[in-house]
Design a protein around this nucleic acid. Structure first.
Lengths: 248, 248
DNA sequence: CGACTCTTTGAATTTTGTCAAACTGAGTGG
DNA sequence: CCACTCAGTTTGACAAAATTCAAAGAGTCG
């Protein structure tokens, strides 16, 4: 069998390894799943409310948004997907989508048939456990967002989101030093934070002038991580990452 | 083997059956799990943030609240638990609790050791799938709450919560006609909806005077379900209940 | 009857949303 | 190379929603 580190090139393996220890044969099984790779432009729907997909996707590159629309034409982004995430894995067990998924940036997605996933889960119960665990972490992230939206004012609410995204990107190696890509528009931030784009803009300026963040040209820099964590009231426990230290 | 309907007396069987079809031997396996039954008074913590429980509970009677506290002393109730729910099932796969669980009313809870649950999941993969599915439904409920808190104003936000709780209670047989127990205080509603108790009180009065609800002595009556659904912008799809018709 | 929690009310304030418009920078085509 | 478009950002003035603070009622329980 190939040396262990070879498997880690696969984003899903890397992601699952960040929350669950996998054996080599389990990693090999994930690697061997037939996967249809597709490239999508920005702002394309991958699945929509009401769909019943027969496959789920893995984000290989790019960023996605999961969202729910209300009848009054407003939308809540309930989650951002980054490399290694499986934003519609739920469709493996829930027939009908209760949310939509779209690309935020150009994306490379890997599609795996539910039948394949089910087969791997049967043959490797620990992979099933890892996937189950990853959906539980997703749920923990939902709880954290709900807490932010419900209880924190704009300033710390936004800081909290920045902390979470940096922590999650760090867990899959997407942060260098104190800097990472941040391709999210203010309108999208507004939809995620439950505030208006105008208000997002004002809060963003406050965070900037207080020196908590530098956000420019789609890149986010956090000059002082501990200070941002403090204003955000951020505790990374809910991400259930095995290792989450600032530097690698 | 005993006739099928005998198993349905177990709240967990009834709950799982509402979202997933189980075979008789699977129901029997659930019934045979050693379960320590405990009675708790209202407002008692069952598990707290940071705990690493070695068992999970099933709500046999009463109502619970899952909540997260912020450093500023505010709390967000992220979920209400009713009969049949397993509000801390996540601890089976996530070591450290990222939320707390407490009773809202006097409760009867059944505690099952994780070792027992793991064993049943191994022997009956379809039970594992049913439990996984139930955690995915919980996540869907989180998304719906987030959407409500983030995008709906107080009036429809509260109406949405009423719809959800009635629909969920109906799915486990806790609604008679258009009426069910509703033992939640206005302060607790406020913590769940991300608003203040004062504002909850005002919105509640508006909902009452508009004839959408009757809430009195811990009982909720919905005179016109369709009208409440309309103001709440409620679509029960996200509950993924196999059967969810108003009348039984 | 207290003691208690829960609900209700009023008034002033703050936060956030709405509307409308101007500005910026990247890309496009004449 | 210069208008031109287009998406995204920024600004100002005003309105609406929700919070805060404070206090008074109501209902329940020992």
């Amino acid at each position: 069998m190939a040396p262990s580190h070879v498997f880690d090139a696969h984003p899903l393996v890397q992601k699952l390894e960040s929350i669950f220890a996998l054996a080599d044969d389990e990693k090999a099984a994930i690697l061997s799943m037939p996967m249809q790779v597709a490239t999508l432009r920005a702002d394309q729907d991958v699945v929509r409310v009401g769909d019943s997909p027969s496959r789920s996707c893995i984000i290989l590159e790019g960023m996605t948004a999961t969202y729910v629309s209300t009848s009054k034409g407003r939308r809540q982004i309930v989650s951002f997907g980054i490399m290694g995430d499986t934003p519609d894995l739920q469709s493996l067990l829930l027939e009908e989508m209760d949310n939509s998924l779209s690309t935020l940036t150009p994306c490379t997605l890997g599609f795996v048939q539910h039948a394949v996933l089910r087969d791997v889960c049967t043959r490797f119960p620990r992979i099933a456990a890892a996937l189950w665990r990853s959906t539980l972490v997703d749920a923990a992230i939902f709880r954290a967002w709900m807490t932010s939206i419900g209880q924190r004012e704009g300033y710390s609410r936004m800081a909290h989101l920045f902390c979470e995204l940096v922590a999650r990107k760090r867990a899959v190696g997407l942060v260098e030093e104190d800097r990472c890509a941040f391709p999210i528009t203010q309108t999208e931030l507004a939809d995620a934070l439950g505030m208006t784009a105008v208000h997002v803009n004002r809060v963003l300026q406050a965070l900037r002038s207080d020196g908590h963040i530098v956000l420019d040209q789609g890149w986010l820099t956090v000059p002082d991580w501990d200070r941002l964590v403090a204003v955000a009231d951020f505790d990374a426990t809910y991400l259930h990452v095995k290792e989450n230290r600032p530097a690698a």
